[in-house]
Nucleic acid binder design. Structure first.
Lengths: 189, 189
DNA sequence: CCAATTTGCCTAAGTGACTTAGGCAAATGC
DNA sequence: GCATTTGCCTAAGTCACTTAGGCAAATTGG
């Protein structure tokens, strides 16, 4: 009986792909075993549990998304940076719905603290550098931006914007313009 | 063997309560059977499936939330209406996390069309009456408001705002103020 | 290069949730 | 009071998760 060459990394990667293909909740230890043509129990040498698998997928997605956002932000400021951030977020969700869903999984406190989630928070704050907001307004703005981006992407993915004639892309651009105007009007206040 | 008096309505209500107590994903046909001290299979006379149960809970939550929002909006306009809407939404999520989660479940197209989700959309649009926005800006604004409220509440419930000293209530009020200012500045444009 | 050890995948077995089929008894209605 | 309907039951099959223990392949080190 030849070995399949399983590792936590390969399993995570396969799980990530599976999530985009069939949805995060269809990513199961059993489905993964089928994909590798291996018995389910064999995966437990590499994964602590089904929860462990999900967590690894979430961490992978957070990291990948943070990398993309960082690349998109490089060398940009002000509205450019705002749009780059939002677009990176939205594009990732559209290209990789399963990964995006995984990135929203609730992690326990210590795992979250060690995750790329921290980079996300830092980058959101970095966008605001161009707008010169004093504290605590800066924190308020970070929260509002996070809310808008996360909310918009979630609702759009859930199909919430597909029952009106108005193009979602237009609404997205209007939203980015509005946020920029809002932040500029708050600058230095 | 005395009868337990099960009905779809009683089961849905129990499921709703269970969702708030232990989380929506712990709401299972089996858990419900235990709560009524009845065998699992007995529930299948009243529910088509586990999915059916979840859908009923979602519809209940959507309806209840729409009622609350409608009550909060009555007689208000402009910023008052905006804040009432947002607060109704946020308060519901805080008081009833399980129901709020259920209200986010994705329903199939026809079920969604027959649900109170339609009322939600109408009420969001009603808020904007006071701001006198032309189309398509009104649609853009509806989408943005929905995104902010849904996003803020989701992130707050997920604990995303609890790692900074700044009070979440302050950020919420700042966000409402900002949205009001934004909409006013767009009026009639 | 062979022996000892470690590693990787296996079989076996138990848990818990979902679902269908078919039966008996309680409630209902004539 | 009897027939019918209704409500909950037992039985049985599916599928996912998880642990324990075993055998064989890979690795290591003499």
């Amino acid at each position: 009986m030849a070995r399949a060459g399983l590792t936590p990394e390969r399993l995570t990667l396969a799980g990530v792909e599976l999530a985009d293909e069939v949805g995060l909740d269809q990513v199961t230890v059993s489905a993964l075993a089928r994909r590798f043509d291996v018995k389910v129990a064999s995966l437990y040498s590499h994964l602590k549990s089904s929860q462990d698998l999900k967590t690894r997928i979430a961490l992978f997605a957070l990291e990948e998304l943070a990398d993309r956002v960082a690349a998109a932000l490089a060398g940009r400021a002000g509205k450019d940076a705002l749009a780059a951030f939002g677009n990176a977020y939205r594009d990732y969700a559209r290209e990789h719905p399963g990964r995006y869903a995984a990135a929203q999984l609730r992690l326990d406190t210590e795992t979250a603290a060690a995750s790329a989630g921290v980079r996300h928070a830092q980058m959101t704050r970095a966008i605001l550098r161009g707008y010169d907001l004093p504290e605590p307004d800066q924190t308020h703005a970070v929260r509002m931006l996070g809310s808008v981006f996360h909310g918009y992407v979630s609702l759009e993915m859930a199909g919430g914007f597909s029952h009106t004639a108005v193009d979602s892309q237009q609404s997205w651009e209007w939203t980015l313009d509005s946020l920029d105007a809002l932040l500029r009007s708050q600058a230095g206040s």
